[in-house]
Design a protein around this nucleic acid. Structure first.
Length: 266
DNA sequence: AATGGGACCTGCGCGC
DNA sequence: TGCGCGCAGGTCCCAT
């Protein structure tokens, strides 16, 4: 579900909601979503900890604790953090000293919670590529050079660039007028510059609108994201391209549904 | 190195 | 009404 803009939106709301609050208890309704450590060590490691800071890297949330440990939350497809939570549908609830709680919900149970001593050493985080807005055009060009992979799956490879998923990859490629099936190394300098610029501007706009609520993504406070109103290709198979009126097409790349305009994107 | 397939999960909407 | 299938914003693992 959530890509960079959705996770960033969650991070910002979470900051306002729970930073400086003290955890007094943890309710585990579904131990499956806790990948490390075991339930009791997870509970004990969180109890009495105060939340000091919340960070985002790619699509992962990092909740830093006064104990020096960190809670890593990856929402994958259907994870949600809700504050204040009611406990309904909660897989794990974090109870605070103010009597309120933050619920972790996850319909498909693909998400992960981990309590770690040092988040820098979590393999997935250590391997993440740079954030899109940290990239200079030259670096971006380097990342794509020599790569035989198709550009859309490569954009979604978290080791290449962090935070880009299926939806925003499709939108960025449309804005940059590049066909998703193009081999990355075949992009000319101008196309690479267009693509980075499209990626950054789309992420920025999407964050401004709290991300895209397509199915059931909501922010921490339960608000929907409005960026779906701005989608040009994602989910628009058979509908007319806003630029050239050709029908938007859908294909599969790297196992993921891929939407594009065959006329605008060459 | 890169790609394709499957796996992990649940639930929705569709056609029959 | 019921059933099977395809689909879903993510990532990992294995075979080729």
């Amino acid at each position: 579900m959530p890509e960079l803009p959705e996770v960033e939106t969650i991070k910002r709301e979470l900051q306002k909601a729970i930073v400086h609050k003290k955890i007094v208890g943890v309710i585990i309704n579904d131990p499956y979503v806790i990948k490390e450590p075991g339930s009791s060590r997870f509970k004990n490691g969180l109890r009495k900890a105060t939340i000091t800071r919340i960070l985002r890297r790619g699509k992962a949330l990092i909740v830093e604790l006064s104990s020096g440990k960190a809670l890593i939350v990856h929402l994958r497809m259907t994870g949600q953090l809700v504050y204040p939570g009611s406990g309904a549908a909660s897989r794990v609830s974090f109870l605070f000293s103010n009597g309120r709680q933050c619920d972790y919900n996850d319909r498909r149970r693909l998400g992960e919670l981990r309590l770690v001593n040092s988040w820098q050493s979590v393999p997935f985080l250590a391997k993440l590529g740079p954030e899109p807005d940290q990239l200079k055009p030259k670096q971006f060009a380097m990342l794509l050079s020599q790569r035989k992979a198709k550009i859309k799956p490569l954009l979604m490879d978290q080791r290449c660039i962090a935070g880009v998923g299926n939806l925003y990859a499709a939108e960025a490629l449309f804005k940059a007028r590049i066909r998703p099936s193009r081999v990355a190394a075949s992009l000319c300098d101008a196309e690479k510059r267009r693509l980075l610029s499209a990626l950054c501007s789309i992420m920025k706009q999407a964050i401004k609108h709290r991300g895209s609520s397509i199915d059931q993504y909501v922010t921490v406070s339960g608000k929907r994201g409005n960026y779906a109103h701005f989608h040009k290709v994602y989910g628009r198979e058979g509908k007319l391209c806003y630029v050239c009126k050709a029908a938007i097409e859908r294909t599969v790349l790297g196992g993921r549904g891929t939407y594009f305009c065959a006329r605008c994107q060459q």
